[in-house]
């Protein structure tokens, strides 16, 4: 199975080296097309005017912040069940990217909300759930930072990620409940049930561009993490070699 071949970090780095230029090129091209469509070919909305153009970055980033959590959950299963050596690398490097996309979704949502709802922040069910998701991302990053042993930190973060994945639907459900209880459907819904194809295509292209951006950044961050662990292992080996009493024990693999 090809998936297992890349358990070896050195092979993974080689794969990244080959793959990355293509992905970057594709990502830039898709962004160029998507942005062109978003600004020049997509018509303005008859209700929202030009502010509809915020949708082309708001919806993809909101989508990506959930996809990133999915990637982290799958990686966490990989860490706990299969002990795949790259799984916790993947989970760790996805967290800051996910947090950034969540932040982008919140910022664009509130900048869209100001002209539409008249307020920057509405305690709307979706924005509230995304805010909770942001806190979870930041908590996971804090957990990674506070533990210095990457293996132990990886397992702890994996447990928390999976508990969070179990909890996210419950949070979504309860926030929806809370929202309908406190404000009976008065807010303008941002995306109507129907969307015209002239608006749908730019959205899909932008979503693809954001997804490619995520994978580019994720692969680059994973490569950094592999290098960081290599540096850590070498430093520890160097420290054990420099101590003469334990020099004989240094022959064991340091990674």
């Amino acid at each position: 199975m090809a998936f297992w071949d890349y358990a070896n970090p050195t092979r993974f780095l080689k794969l990244v080296q080959v793959l990355l230029p293509w992905l970057v090129g594709l990502c830039v091209a898709t962004f160029a097309i998507g942005l062109y469509m978003a600004f020049f070919t997509a018509p303005e909305d008859y209700q929202q005017g030009d502010t509809i153009r915020i949708m082309y970055i708001h919806v993809p980033s909101a989508w990506l912040c959930m996809m990133c959590y999915t990637v982290m959950s799958i990686s966490s299963i990989g860490t706990l069940v299969w002990k795949h050596p790259l799984a916790d690398v993947s989970a760790k490097s996805a967290a800051p990217i996910g947090a950034a996309f969540t932040f982008m979704a919140l910022v664009t949502g509130s900048l869209w909300g100001k002209p539409m709802w008249g307020t920057y922040w509405e305690w709307d069910a979706r924005m509230t759930s995304v805010l909770v998701l942001l806190i979870m991302y930041l908590g996971l990053m804090a957990l990674w930072r506070t533990m210095d042993d990457p293996i132990k930190a990886g397992k702890a973060a994996a447990v928390l990620t999976l508990v969070g994945a179990l909890n996210l639907p419950i949070i979504k459900f309860s926030v929806d409940w809370w929202n309908t209880l406190h404000q009976p459907a008065s807010v303008v819904r941002l995306d109507g049930p129907t969307i015209h194809s002239s608006q749908l295509w730019p959205l899909l292209v932008m979503a693809l561009a954001f997804t490619l951006l995520f994978f580019v950044l994720h692969l680059m961050a994973m490569r950094n993490e592999v290098l960081r662990r290599r540096v850590r292992a070498l430093r520890m080996r160097a420290a054990s070699v420099s101590r003469p009493a334990t020099a004989s024990a240094s022959a064991q693999p340091a990674e």
């Binding site: 030009d50 932040f103 664009t108 961050a221």
Partner: peptide, 29 residues
């Protein structure tokens, strides 16, 4: 249109966030 500021601000902030991510990845490497 009348809300150009909001549109430019949201695209600008997204660009800044992405640039920050890219800078983080490059500096880290």
């Amino acid at each position: 249109g009348p809300h150009a500021g909001f549109i430019i601000a949201s695209y600008g902030l997204c660009l800044l966030t992405v640039l920050a991510l890219i800078a983080w990845v490059r500096i880290d490497k």
